[in-house]
Simulated scan of single mutants.
Amino acid sequence: MSTMKNRTVFITGGSRGIGRAIALACARQGANVVIGAKSDEPHPKLPGTIHSVAKEIRQAGGQALPLVLDVRDEKLVRQRIDEAANHFGGIDALVNNAGAIKLTGVENLKVSRYDLMHQVNARAVFLCSQAALPWLKESDQAHILSLSPPLNLDTRWFAQYGPYTTTKYAMTMLSMGMAEEFRRYGIAVNTLWPKTLIATAAIEFEVGGPQMMAQGRKPDIMADAALSILSRPAASMTGQSVIDEDVLRADGVTDFEHYRYQAGDKPLLPDLFLD
């Protein structure tokens, strides 16, 4: 594997959860990490701001640039990506991690909430990738990695929460398209999704509460898988929709127990969109 030392990684939604874990994994390898998220000030319920994560990144051995970012704001996205590139002398990887979730069907979902999911999930992949493209073209190890699932058209994934599902699948479909479109620039475009539920604030507050967290894994498994992908030569893998555990198994990892959020033998819950 090639190293991440001095590579610049731009992560959206990086102030907590999976985004923070990816940031720290990259930092431990000596990367420059840009944390683009809305959390400038501490949240009453949720730990972590762009500034607290920037401090953790520096402590882990990386360089950090915290930037206040709302991925819905086109002008701000372009400004922040250019700012980051100018600060570190380029961008080598974009991680589309920012996400919005509401597991509700069409009948009872507010249009404003659908708009939010569309903008933070699908549209942000389009916008951030387009904005980062001029810089990624300059890198000799360019990656776009979006946190979205393999396409599974079984109707059970549409029946109860089609609006969310379609915005997450759109991220994957855009990634499939960009993998082909950007192949000529040597830019790898892939998606990554967890095999099991990941214990994050989004799960605790939006999906299932603390009892569900106990049947999940820590965000570290996604971070290690993301690091594995981002460390590879861009030419070696593109257009793939991969699962965290599969990536790590291919790297020779056989024991996943230390990734459990809570020790014990409770069965882990598979994540959405996986049979």
Score class of each variant (00 low, 15 high):
residue 82 D to A: 14
residue 118 H to K: 10
residue 115 D to F: 09
residue 92 D to N: 12
residue 75 K to E: 14
residue 104 T to H: 03
residue 122 A to C: 12
residue 92 D to Y: 10
residue 94 L to G: 01
residue 46 L to H: 10
residue 119 Q to R: 13
residue 102 K to W: 08
residue 131 A to D: 04
residue 41 E to D: 10
residue 115 D to T: 14
residue 61 G to N: 06
residue 106 V to P: 05
residue 42 P to C: 11
residue 59 Q to K: 13
residue 81 I to P: 02
residue 116 L to A: 14
residue 36 G to D: 03
residue 113 R to I: 10
residue 29 Q to K: 13
residue 90 G to I: 05
residue 128 C to M: 11
residue 41 E to A: 12
residue 131 A to W: 06
residue 54 A to M: 10
residue 118 H to M: 15
residue 91 I to N: 04
residue 72 R to W: 02
residue 98 A to V: 07
residue 91 I to G: 02
residue 30 G to A: 06
residue 97 N to G: 05
residue 110 K to M: 13
residue 54 A to N: 08
residue 34 V to W: 06
residue 64 A to R: 01
residue 123 R to F: 14
residue 46 L to P: 00
residue 100 A to N: 03
residue 64 A to M: 08
residue 113 R to K: 14
residue 54 A to V: 12
residue 49 T to I: 09
residue 70 D to P: 03
residue 40 D to K: 10
residue 114 Y to A: 05
residue 127 L to A: 12
residue 129 S to W: 04
residue 69 L to K: 00
residue 77 V to K: 01
residue 97 N to R: 03
residue 74 E to L: 07
residue 116 L to D: 15
residue 46 L to R: 14
residue 95 V to H: 04
residue 49 T to M: 03
residue 97 N to F: 09
residue 69 L to C: 07
residue 46 L to Q: 13
residue 67 L to C: 13
